[in-house]
Nucleic acid binder design. Structure first.
Lengths: 126, 126
DNA sequence: ACATATTTGCTAGGTAGCTAGCAAAATTGG
DNA sequence: CCAATTTTGCTAGCTACCTAGCAAATATGT
């Protein structure tokens, strides 16, 4: 993904934020943090980059002034329209592999990931 | 891994470098680059960090002065001795999961990864 | 009503990866 | 033998992730 997006000077997470704003409309920054399950501080940096490039606007909510509403700009929408379809990546990676095998792989990794996340949380909770 | 190593102020790649130097003895920096399959520039940074902390020494080879030999220091060896066994991570993640399923997962991911790497190289070769 | 909590986003500083381009040293080919 | 190429490590500058700690705004509990 990063490689395909390099010509447009975008990283994969920047792409996802743009994708969400273009598709689902203006969104609260904190909701996007939850969607991507990254840290608030990480999102701050990504949004700052997108704002610097003029692709996204950030404005405080009128009701709750802590929250910031993110909106794609005209420039951002234009760029979004020019981006290529990235679904070829999935095709290259998985086409022709047995569906059942993929399902097994997903289950194994999901289980392992959940267990490790569990462990992490317990360690942190102390 | 990062989480388990945080108390020792080590990242996972720093750990691996230390592991290799403690286990296999002094090693050429460029060999380590190949072992870890990371970029030379990335290795430069990691080695710089380890040298700054006094855990690793870096000295030019007498024959080929481009190459740098990496060696664990006394301080590094001491720290290495104090580090906990990290194999519990693998146990937590995979214990009890069917061996055959794990094998399938490995194959699926290996195939997908190889295909994507192939694609990348072709794109770069142009 | 007001002190205490929580939520949200920020800064500062760290790890781990990348590319591009440079310089020095070593190797190779005519 | 010497010019051209390759190898090695470096710097500079980028993305993307993290934690810790702060400040402002809001919510909550007595």
């Amino acid at each position: 993904m990063d490689s395909a997006l390099r010509p447009y000077d975008l990283g994969s997470v920047q792409w996802y934020v743009l994708y969400h704003l273009a598709t689902a409309g203006p969104t609260m920054q904190r909701d996007l943090v939850r969607l991507l399950t990254i840290e608030r501080a990480t999102m701050t940096g990504i949004v700052a980059t997108l704002v610097r490039k003029g692709l996204v606007e950030q404005e405080p909510d009128r009701v709750d002034q802590r929250q910031k509403l993110l909106r794609i700009t005209a420039t951002g929408a234009k760029l979004w329209g020019e981006l290529p379809d990235l679904s070829f990546i999935r095709s290259v990676a998985f086409d022709g592999i047995d569906e059942a095998d993929i399902a097994v792989a997903v289950r194994v990794i999901q289980t392992a990931t959940e267990r490790l996340e569990n462990l992490l949380q317990k360690g942190t909770a102390s």
